[in-house]
Write a protein that binds this DNA or RNA. Structure first.
Length: 276
DNA sequence: TACCAGGCTCCTT
DNA sequence: AAGGAGCATGGT
């Protein structure tokens, strides 16, 4: 007999702000339907989150409590994380600004495809491409579509993704979908450390070091990673006074500063704070 | 209208 | 190993 509970209620909001969680750039399939009320999609599932001054209510389908408990990382103590990080460079202010951020435990395949699309792209456009991708290839769930399976994505060609508006990433999507559908094992990457996991993901077409780090942080919850994009380059300048375009060096230096046990969390607070 | 976006691939040195 | 051109598209 499955759990018939269909909601989670959070009354301690010091470590939970749904706007911070959704707007910090880790997820693209969500939209606001009212003040403090959002619809969030993940894999073939959907939940509604409504947050007021006193509580946040997460509502979902029957039997999905365990899934969403893990998805929102509710076993993790973010007060302890923030306490451990708050004295590191720029974090006092950044943690204050994004105090309700939590790193989601997202689906590996969905995160892989989403961040291939994210490369050199604007967030509103990324959302649009992913939405059209789901509508076109994802299972029809009645009033919404699931994220498509590797098999569904491998069944169409590059031209198809170009018509979705993916631009030059169309080729990457077709190629990587084929590789995963053909047996590339995303699960086995969990066992690798940040460096090795990054290297393995970079063998997929369309995945470079930055996209790999995003996947490792948002879907594998790894902490010995540090996605470096244009915003983090600005943060790097704020911290060190140096201007650099060398993402590899910046990654290494920031990992060193923030520590490879919590650098991923630090990166999200810094990114959200800088991008606004 | 230009410039830019959660960068990557591929070709030269 | 390191550097740089080229890249599709649309938001601002």
């Amino acid at each position: 007999m499955s759990d018939k509970t269909n909601s989670i209620i959070i009354t301690d909001l010091k470590d939970f702000d749904i706007r911070h969680i959704l707007d910090c750039g880790q997820i693209f399939r969500y939209y606001a339907i009212d003040e403090g009320k959002y619809v969030v999609h993940t894999r073939d599932k959907r939940c509604i989150v409504q947050q007021s001054a006193n509580e946040a209510i997460i509502t979902f389908g029957e039997g999905e409590k365990e899934y969403f408990w893990k998805f929102f990382d509710l076993d993790n103590d973010y007060s302890a994380i923030k306490n451990a990080l708050k004295n590191k460079p720029l974090l006092s202010q950044a943690i204050d600004y994004g105090h309700g951020i939590r790193i989601l435990n997202q689906d590996k395949w969905e995160t892989l495809i989403s961040f291939i699309i994210s490369a050199n792209n604007h967030i509103p456009r990324i959302k649009g491409i992913i939405h059209r991708l789901c509508d076109a290839l994802g299972e029809d769930k009645g009033d919404y579509h699931a994220f498509p399976t590797p098999q569904a994505m491998a069944s169409v060609d590059e031209e198809f993704y170009a018509k979705l508006g993916a631009g030059y990433r169309a080729k990457y999507l077709a190629c990587t979908a084929r590789k995963v559908a053909d047996g590339f094992d995303l699960e086995s990457i969990s066992a690798l450390d940040g460096i090795q996991a990054n290297k393995k993901l970079c063998t997929l077409m369309g995945v470079g070091s930055k996209v790999a780090d995003c996947i490792l942080l948002f879907a594998y919850h790894k902490q010995d990673v540090f996605p470096v994009d244009t915003w983090i380059k600005k943060v790097y300048t704020d911290i060190t006074g140096k201007v650099s375009d060398d993402a590899k060096t910046i990654r290494k230096e920031l990992l060193d500063i923030y520590g490879d046990d919590m650098a991923g969390y630090a990166q999200q607070y810094l990114f959200f704070n800088k991008r606004g």
